[in-house]
Structure formats: C-alpha cells, structure tokens
Amino acid sequence: MINFAQGEFAVFGGLLTYTFSCVLHIPILLAAVIAIICTAIIGALMERLFIYPLRNAQIINVIIATIGVSILLKALARLFWPEEAYKVPEFTSSSLTFLGVTQRSQTLWVFGLTLIAVMLTYIFFNHTRVGKGMKACSINREAASLVGINISNMSLYSFSLSAALGGAAGLINAPYASYGSGLFLGVKGFTSAVVGGLGNTFGAIFGGLLVGLIEELIAGFLQVVFGISSGYRDAITALILIVVLLLRPQGIFGRREGVKV
C-alpha cells in the first residue's frame, strides 16, 4: 500500500521538534524523542480513524483516503505553523575536522541516527514477535490471520512505526521544516526504498545513499559540462525511479522472484 501521508509525518516530525525545543525550551534530544512519539500517535490515530474502517475496501479507495489524510494534515500543519519555514536547531552546534575535512557535527548526527534507526528496524522485523508478524501480514494477510496473527493490530503498529520513522527522518534531516515539503520527501523516500529493494531494510540505506549521490553527481555534471541549470535536479530522482522500476523492479540488490498467478 502507498501511504500518501508519509511525507506529512516527516513534516510534523520537524515542526513538532521546532515547537518543543524553541517554543517550550525542552532540551533538543528530549524534544526530538517527544516529537517522534507524537508523530507515532498521529499515525496510530490515522490508522484507527481512517484506515481501519476501510479494511475491506478496494486498495484504490484506501489510497484515496490517504490522500485525504495528507490534505488534512497539511492544512493542520499550516494552521499551527503558518510561516513558510522554521529553523529546527541542530543537535550540537560545532564542527569537526577529520582527515582534513571539516564537517558540521549535524552531519554526523544524521549518519549516526540513521544507522541506529535502521538497526532498530532490522532487529524489530527479524528478531521480535510483532515484527515477524508484520512481515507475515505483508506477505499474505489471510495466511497470517490463520496462524493466529492479529491483522488489525499489525496494521495499527505498522502505521505508528512508519509514522515514527517518517517523523524521525523529518527532524533529523531537514534543517528547515515547513508545511509544504511533504510530497517531495515522500517521493524521494519511495525512490530510495525501490532502489534498495522494497522490504529490504539495509537496502534502503544504500538506496538512499545511492539516490542522493546520483542526484548530486548528475545535477553537478549537467551544470558544469553542459551548462544546464540545476533546476532539473528534482526530475533526476523521478527518472531514477522510473528506470529502476522498469529494469530492476526487485531493487538493485534484490533477487528476481517469480510472479504467482
């Protein structure tokens, strides 16, 4: 299923962190944790209120409902945070020099937190009961419910989890948060997931890295060599998405699987 509201969770993650740390003056790390919990709660609410009643509907109806949720969340974000952009403070404001390269420490935080998030997700999906149940659900719902997995709980958990991860991405990644940035974030996320192979946790990191690198490199190359403006950058991600979907739908690292009829 595609959740069109996924990008909106990232937006909420960023904006909530801003509110907690800059308006309520909570220490930034604590603020981040609270923001992630809040987005998870929003995700859970969304599932119970809007997705759960649609459990027997056609997939396209569910997708349209997530579009509705995304429109609603965007309007709410604009209601509470009406300005164009908010500066989310960095975790630690210093820079590090390593092997002659100076980096803002925020970059390290991004790397570290991404790694931690991915590790946790991996462990969750492969070594816990709930995670394995969720995986089973995504493979075959009927079969999963036959062996005693509570499908409706799994759906609730997976929405909360993906909202929490989306929120984390939003607050770590964006130095600026604004209500309008949701959709492009969602597309980039989906592209990374597809490049790494859907359902492959570690593939997603490589996918993300690869997409980011290719985008920067091609945009730079076009600009320096052909003098084409860097405005085409946004199109590159979309192009990567289409090419990978056509040529390697199982992802760069995935194995090709037969299609069952």
């Binding site: 997939i59 597309v187 946004d234 199109a235 998405l241 739908p249």
Partner: peptide, 23 residues
Amino acid sequence: ILRLRGHYLAMATLGFAIISFVV
C-alpha cells in the same frame, strides 16, 4: 511503464508527472 502494475505503475506515472513539471 504500462508493464508495471499496481502501486509501481502509480509511482512511475507520478515520476512522469514530476519530470514533465520540471521540464
């Protein structure tokens, strides 16, 4: 891209929409 199915087709056409907007 019509070879793709379901969400994959949706995402590919979405990619097309972004590309044509940027162009």
